[in-house]
Design a protein around this nucleic acid. Structure first.
Length: 264
DNA sequence: ATGACGGCGTTGCGCCGA
């Protein structure tokens, strides 16, 4: 079972790239972020044509999240984060698919720091961590996948010293991420590649991709039973080099079959 | 410190992202 996350930076503008990548990778489940489209402008038909059922929570111009599945209808469990400090922003959606609970998230950027946007980021992170704890306590197989807008460590930034005061790398935010993971989650990509420089985002400026001046900010966190089923975790970084591409690359994991030992 | 690039929309500029 392949589960992916992809910040598309505009689902309609990105549609040809998204469809090309879906055909190439053939993921079973995909979390999308930054749809940048209102609810009625989601390209449902084109995505269905590609073999995927979808649920989504749109918003005009900004944010917006979706879950796609080619292994059965995503059974929606939530379309907002409990306790979200600003419910007008579409940043969380959750569904059961293929025996796994999938939480798709787009954590606030938080810049500039300090400021109200940074405060919102920390409050959102708090609410998210509380929800994550409840999911762990329910002892279900869970994947929390999306754009966390956090580089967890120095290894995840091309020039850590340039980012120390940024909302994506500030001590408070890295601590929030570390505390979240410490609840019992497994950072799939980092677990599979413990010492590797591996990025999921390269900005559009200054030939960032060509210079590999990237960031690792898109993460898939696995609950304990799923951590034992992790077979692979990769970034489809070549997609970042396609024409009309997103500034993020898709990230995916492969989970082995549930065994009696790992089930529930 | 700033801008660059790219997507969106009371659209050919201003705002936002990271």
């Amino acid at each position: 079972m392949i589960i992916a996350t992809y910040n598309v930076n505009g689902v309609n503008g990105r549609l040809p790239v998204l469809l090309r990548w879906l055909a190439e990778r053939q993921p079973d489940v995909v979390c999308l972020q930054e749809l940048k489209a209102p609810q009625d402008k989601f390209p449902e038909a084109a995505i269905a044509e590609a073999g995927y059922e979808a649920i989504w929570h749109g918003q005009k111009s900004w944010n917006g999240v979706a879950i796609l599945s080619r292994i059965g209808t995503p059974v929606e469990t939530r379309r907002a984060l409990p306790g979200d400090p600003d419910e007008a922003q579409s940043r969380y959606i959750e569904a059961a698919v293929g025996g796994v609970l999938i939480g798709g998230l787009y954590l606030p950027n938080g810049n500039p720091r300090p400021g109200p946007k940074f405060d919102y980021k920390l409050r959102w992170f708090d609410a998210f961590a509380r929800h994550a704890r409840e999911l762990l306590d329910a002892d279900m197989p869970v994947v929390l996948a999306g754009d966390y807008n956090v580089m967890p460590t120095d290894l995840d930034v091309y020039k850590p010293e340039r980012w120390r005061d940024d909302a994506l790398f500030a001590p408070e935010v890295r601590a929030a991420y570390a505390n979240l993971v410490a609840q019992g989650w497994t950072d799939a990509l980092r677990t599979q590649h413990p010492d590797e420089t591996i990025y999921t985002f390269w900005d559009y400026f200054r030939n960032a991709y060509g210079r590999n001046a990237g960031l690792r900010i898109d993460h898939l966190l696995l609950s304990p039973t799923l951590a034992g089923r992790l077979r692979a975790a990769e970034v489809d970084r070549h997609v970042r080099n396609w024409e009309k591409t997103s500034d993020h690359a898709p990230v995916w994991i492969e989970l082995g079959e549930a065994t009696r030992r790992s089930r529930r």
